[in-house]
C-alpha cells in the first residue's frame, strides 16, 4: 500500500478528556496532503490534538488514521513516518548544533556516515552551517527553532507536526521560518501546525481549521472562511482619511452601487472604500472571542 494514496489524516469521533475536563469533543476531519493549520486561542486544545495525532498520548474514543495507518494498531509504523516538534525545544543546549543532529540520527539508527551527511545537508538547508559547531545555548530563539525542526527531519518524515512553531519569535525570525516551512512543503513534506496567529495560518496553510473549546468550529481555505461570514463593508472616509461611517452590504454589485450613489448625492466630498472581512473578524464571529494580537505587538522588537 502506498501511503500517499491515503488521506493524510482521517479523524472520526475523536474525544479526549483529562479527568472531568473534556478537552477534545467528538472531532471529525479528513485532510489531504499539504500544509494544514490548526488555529485557536490558548487553551483551545491544540497541543492536546497534536499530541494525540502524533501518537504521544492516547485518545479516549474515536478512530484516527495517520497516512492510512491506525494510531492504536500501527503506532510503530506511523512513528517511522512522522515527527513531532513540540512547543518547547527538544534540543540540548550543552551540545553543538551538529552534535544535536548526530544524536538524533544515531537514535534513529542511521550509520555514522549517513548521520553526518544528512545532518550537514539539513543544517545547510536551514542556514545553520556557520553556527553548527557552536553550543546551542548560544543560539537565538529563531536558530534554536530551526535546529529543532531540522533535527525532526533527520529520518525524512512524510508528515511533520509543529506545535506553535513561531510563538516567541521576532518578526524577522518568524518570516524566515515561514520561508523554511514553505520550502519544506515544496519538497513534498506534509505539515500539520498549530498557531494562535491568524496571519500565520493565512500565509502558510492550504487549509485552516479553527479549534475553539475542543470543537472544530470552521474548516477551509482562508478565502472560504472569509466567505463564510459573507458580505463586505463600505467605509466612508473624511478628507483626513478617518473612517466616519461603516455600512454593511451583501457585497453584490447592485447593492454596493446603490449605497455608494446615495453617499455621492449627499456627501460628494468624502472618499469610500469597500472592504472584505479580515480573518480576524471571521475568528471573532466564529468564536465570540478576538484572536491573539500578540503577533503584532511582540514582533515590534527588532
Amino acid at each position: 500500500m502506498s501511503y500517499t494514496d491515503s488521506p493524510l489524516l482521517e479523524i472520526s469521533g475523536l474525544s479526549k478528556s483529562y479527568g472531568k475536563h473534556d478537552v477534545l469533543k467528538n472531532l471529525n476531519l479528513t485532510l489531504p496532503p499539504g500544509i494544514h493549520a490548526l488555529l485557536g486561542p490558548n487553551g483551545a486544545g491544540k497541543t492536546t490534538l497534536i499530541n494525540v495525532l502524533s501518537t504521544l498520548i492516547p485518545h479516549d474514543s474515536g478512530e484516527i488514521r495517520v497516512l492510512g495507518l491506525d494510531t492504536r494498531r500501527d503506532k510503530k509504523r506511523i512513528q517511522g513516518l512522522i515527527s513531532l516538534t513540540g512547543q518547547y525545544a527538544a534540543v540540548d543546549g550543552q551540545l553543538s548544533g551538529m552534535e544535536n543532529m548526530l544524536m538524533m540520527g544515531r537514535l534513529f539508527g542511521l550509520s555514522r556516515r549517513d548521520a553526518v551527511r544528512r545532518s550537514q545537508a539539513l543544517l545547510e538547508r536551514f542556514d545553520l552551517t556557520a553556527a553548527m559547531n557552536k553550543r546551542v545555548s548560544t543560539y537565538s530563539g529563531g536558530m534554536r527553532r530551526k535546529l529543532d525542526i531540522a533535527a525532526s527531519l533527520i529520518a525524512d518524515p512524510l508528515l511533520i507536526f509543529l506545535d506553535e512553531p513561531t510563538t516567541g519569535l521576532d518578526t524577522r525570525s518568524r518570516q524566515a521560518l515561514w520561508d523554511e516551512i514553505q520550502a519544506l512543503a515544496a519538497h513534498g513534506t506534509s505539515i500539520f501546525l498549530t498557531t494562535q496567529y491568524l496571519e500565520e495560518a493565512d500565509v502558510l496553510a492550504d487549509r485552516i481549521m479553527v479549534l475553539h473549546d475542543g470543537r472544530i468550529v470552521a474548516e477551509g481555505t482562508a478565502s472560504q472562511l472569509k466567505e463564510r461570514i459573507g458580505g463586505s463593508t463600505i467605509q466612508v472616509h473624511d478628507q483626513a482619511g478617518r473612517v466616519i461611517k461603516e455600512i454593511s452590504t451583501s457585497g453584490e454589485a447592485t447593492d454596493v452601487a446603490h449605497h455608494i450613489s446615495a453617499i455621492a448625492q449627499h456627501q460628494p466630498e468624502v472618499a469610500v472604500t469597500v472592504r472584505r472581512p479580515t480573518l480576524d473578524e471571521v475568528f471573532l464571529e466564529l468564536t465570540g472571542a478576538p484572536a491573539s494580537q500578540e503577533s503584532d505587538t511582540e514582533g515590534a522588537q527588532t
Partner: peptide, 11 residues
C-alpha cells in the same frame, strides 16, 4: 523540555 516527547513519537 520537548526532548522526551519527541523520543516518545519515535519508533
Amino acid at each position: 523540555t520537548g526532548f522526551m516527547n519527541r523520543l516518545r513519537t519515535m519508533p
